[in-house]
Design a protein around this nucleic acid. Sequence first.
DNA 1: ACCTGTCAAGTCTGG
DNA 2: CCAGACTTGACAGGT
Length: 333
Amino acid sequence: MIVRFGYVAMSLNLKDSSPSKTMTMARFAKLPDREAALRQLERIAEENLHRTLRLLRHNVAEGIEMYRFSSKLIPLATHLDLQDWNPFEALAEPFAEIGDYVRKHRLRVSFHPDHFTVLSTPRPEVLISSVRDLRYHVKMLEAMGLDARAKNNIHIGGAYGDKPSAAERFVEHFAGLEPDIQCRLTLENDDKTFTTGETLAVAQRTGLPMVLDIHHHWVNSGGEPASDWWPEVARTWESPLARTDVPEGEPLPPKIHASSPKSPTDRRSHADGVEAGPLLDFLRVAARTSPHLDVMLEAKHKDQALFQLMKDLEAYEGDGVKILSGGKIEVQG
DNA sequence: ACCTGTCAAGTCTGG
DNA sequence: CCAGACTTGACAGGT
């Protein structure tokens, strides 16, 4: 099994490369000239996009082919008071540059809209802003010129005291989404509410591919190994919806999230790095099912955690592990 | 240069 | 019904 590693949004190695520079609403509201303030927001966004491209170049130079974009590329993009503002025209070029680079180097990229996007919500106004947020993420991917292989990962959402009804609402609300939003979604199990099994059931009903977070699984499960679920989870990546825009015969590698607990007393928080041992246990089992797998590392130390993990994996070389590049390995089942 | 409170958004818990 | 926790990087204002 070929395994590619990626990291989230920012690098600790590249100086001045935060792709999430922002402007607060309070600051925006204080500026006297609204048009000038909007231009300033666009300048910040442009800077974030240029930094994103720098990060991608850094990744390619290090052999890293997977990356999650920051959701904060355009400050205040979905704020209600700025709905008359369309920043995409001014940002067409930097977005296109990123997309060109992604295609040229065949990178796996994604977004992860944050926890304000909740399709299981019973509140209409929350659903409306959730859809607005999803549309914003899709627009960014479209502005990059990327097809539906580039996806937006979300959770099911809250349970509101009745998980089955919440899951039911998710399915209904999902069915009401525009097709171009639907075909770019992935569904991830969370650390408190929807377990691997419950998330998988919704993924199977909707046809969505499921991102298995093995750390979330560890803190929110009956104790059975995450790898027990792998064959079924992997199969969700074969659905027609998941494979939208995937050329016939080409693989769409399943994706998982990996992180390690911060401490025995704080098991839910993310540690600085990712432990090689437990991850490798999972990978060896997954290798029996899948020829390809992409692993998003969610660690405080971001790309440095990735470099450290690759270093730690060297100890397993010969023991069913082969290092292929700075961010890619081969694992024997 | 460094520190602290705050930030657009949601949900859950406990009072 | 409401305040605070959760969680996170970065701003903004203060020292």
